[in-house]
Design a protein around this nucleic acid. Structure first.
Lengths: 122, 122
DNA sequence: TTGACATATGCTGATATCGGAATATGATTG
DNA sequence: CAATCATATTCCGATATCAGCATATGTCAA
């Protein structure tokens, strides 16, 4: 097999820097494709393609206005990612708590075991 | 060109469901490769490869203990993603504020223009 | 040193994905 | 209807990425 289906979820959609740029261009509110093209500095077909992906994973929605199309962020999908990463939030404090352990271990080197270091994890 | 370099940042790393599973397996704390293999139900080489990617983007760190290797989450990378998605947090409320506008527009249909609907964007 | 165990790496083939250029679709205006 | 403007789609070649399998590296114990 090849890479797992990419166009299928929000995690994959925001893996592409260009698509993150498009989302950032929409942070201010609705925008037209042309406006996005200007904002991100890509060609129009590229932007349209990225918008298609973002549409398919429901990260943006669109509505026609005359010959233009206004895109806006559908934040629910981003929220999923925000929430998922948030489930690890406890660890980016814990990490600091354990930092001294790690550092002392490095200083000491793995060759000199220490009663406190061993057996106090968890 | 092909796909933008994938192994280079955390956004891409978590695009792979298998890698998210590995991270989830590490949510409880440190774990051995073998333990991760059991938890996620992939082959050992696959897990090792995914761990390599996660290592390269600094989403996990590792330390050797005997013949085993203990992996742990390095949450800083996840925090970057959490923060980035968080910059859109304002919108997943705003969306509800605008919901009635959108709905009434759909009910009415684009065929019947309305003074309030047209011209009040922006 | 040899063997057993844990983990990492290399190779291969299949495929999704990207950028680029050309072109198609759709809507508005005259 | 024809022209124009905005956006979408298609075709292409290049390539990174994945899974699977085999094998290499590293560590401990006898």
């Amino acid at each position: 097999m090849a890479r797992a289906s990419t166009t299928s979820d929000a995690f994959n959609a925001i893996a592409e820097p260009a698509r993150r740029a498009v989302l950032e261009a929409l942070r201010g509110g609705e925008a037209t494709v042309g406006a996005i093209v200007e904002a991100v500095g890509l060609t129009q077909p590229q932007v349209s393609k990225h918008l298609k992906v973002l549409r398919e994973v429901r990260l943006v929605s669109t509505r026609p206005v005359g010959k233009e199309r206004l895109y806006r962020i559908d934040a629910a999908g981003l929220r999923v990612i925000h929430d998922w990463t948030g489930t690890f939030a406890a660890m980016w404090n814990q990490r600091l708590d354990r930092l001294d352990d790690v550092l002392s271990e490095l200083d000491r080197g793995p060759s000199r075991p220490n009663s406190r270091t061993k057996g106090n994890h968890r």
